[in-house]
Design a protein around this nucleic acid. Structure first.
Lengths: 190, 190
DNA sequence: GAAAATAGTTGAACAAGTTCAACTTGATAA
DNA sequence: TTATCAAGTTGAACTTGTTCAACTATTTTC
């Protein structure tokens, strides 16, 4: 079944019956995205939430100075969206771009909101997912404050070796919040 | 009624009946904390979630180098906890310290987990709260990457003037991720 | 398979932020 | 009120990270 990965992922965060799982997954539709194509572009309003089946995405913003800043990467078994734009239905500051030919399952905002109503445990599912994400963001902010760029680079490379291996140094630098020139110098040092 | 502020806060995030509100608030108990006293200390396991009625708290960690790093401040009408330690029941890396004589409403972890079961809309309430918090953390991370210390300082001082006015420059610096000496130089410039 | 575009490297000059130490100011406590 | 302690200021030397420019290597495209 094509939705197996999604079902496994959901089961990690809430205990659902098979019929509930089926009912939820029904609303997700597959989409293929070619390398370099975008699922969302800065200025658009995010009307979907996505789950990566295959490939890799980069979620980034371009600031006033023209610098790209990567919020996170999403690879197989990760969720992806602009939660700010999705919740508030305001224009997104983010770009969601495929780094390689990729496949996602998408759910429309209206369907997702309906699921919260029709299947109460969906509330718990996303409550738990959001809280786990919150923990990750808090930890990352502390690391950004306490650690040097070199330490942050090694942490990233060691913690997510399979993601790091898919990325260019430019993309990694934009995630770490440093220039790619400086990352090049860091890598030479050690 | 002493719980009015809490009820108003909850109502912003989910629509509850009065009886549900009463049932939820029943489990919160007031606690007074003297200036400089701690509600949670690094190494302890966080067994509560709190809501500030009065005063101001600083949530911070002390890293290996001995530097204090402030995750956030919580003043009247804000929530406060170590969500990492609370969820995983692992020793906390955080300290929650009162910056002035303060009052909070606390709910025990076991009571909160029971509320998720007994009042389904509590799931929605914390799902929405978590997602709003997630948005705030993502925005803050982007600001940390795109803006200079000076820009971040002015953003903080302008966005939260009533919090900033309660804080020493040392505390603000530890929130911005810079030294207090450098903050002093920033303030002199402009 | 050649041409063009993009990624990565290096160096030199620079800017942002830290460290340490000495000092001034302000708050707290006895 | 004075003594003490913490907060804030300032300067000099230093480290971390940036900018720009020139170059090399690697992909991508036609």
């Amino acid at each position: 079944m094509v939705n197996d990965l999604l079902k496994q992922n959901i089961k990690k965060n809430a205990q659902l019956s098979n019929s509930e799982l089926e009912e939820i997954c029904k609303y997700f539709y597959p989409q293929s995205i070619k390398k370099k194509a975008s699922l969302l572009t800065q200025g658009e309003i995010c009307k979907f939430e996505g789950f990566v089946l295959e490939g890799c995405f980069r979620i980034f913003t371009i600031d006033k100075k023209g610098n790209e800043n990567t919020l996170y990467f999403a690879t197989r078994d990760w969720w992806l969206m602009d939660i700010d734009s999705f919740m508030n239905q305001t224009p997104s500051n983010l770009n969601i771009q495929a780094l390689e030919d990729s496949k996602v399952l998408l759910i429309n905002r209206t369907d997702k909101l309906a699921l919260y109503e029709s299947i109460p445990i969906v509330e718990k599912l996303f409550r738990v997912m959001s809280q786990k994400a919150l923990v990750a963001w808090q930890r990352r902010l502390i690391r950004n404050h306490c650690e040097t760029a070199k330490e942050r680079y090694h942490y990233f490379a060691n913690t997510y070796p399979n993601i790091a291996s898919k990325l260019t140094d430019k993309q990694i630098a934009s995630y770490l919040g440093i220039t790619h020139e400086f990352l090049s110098k860091i890598k030479k040092q050690s």
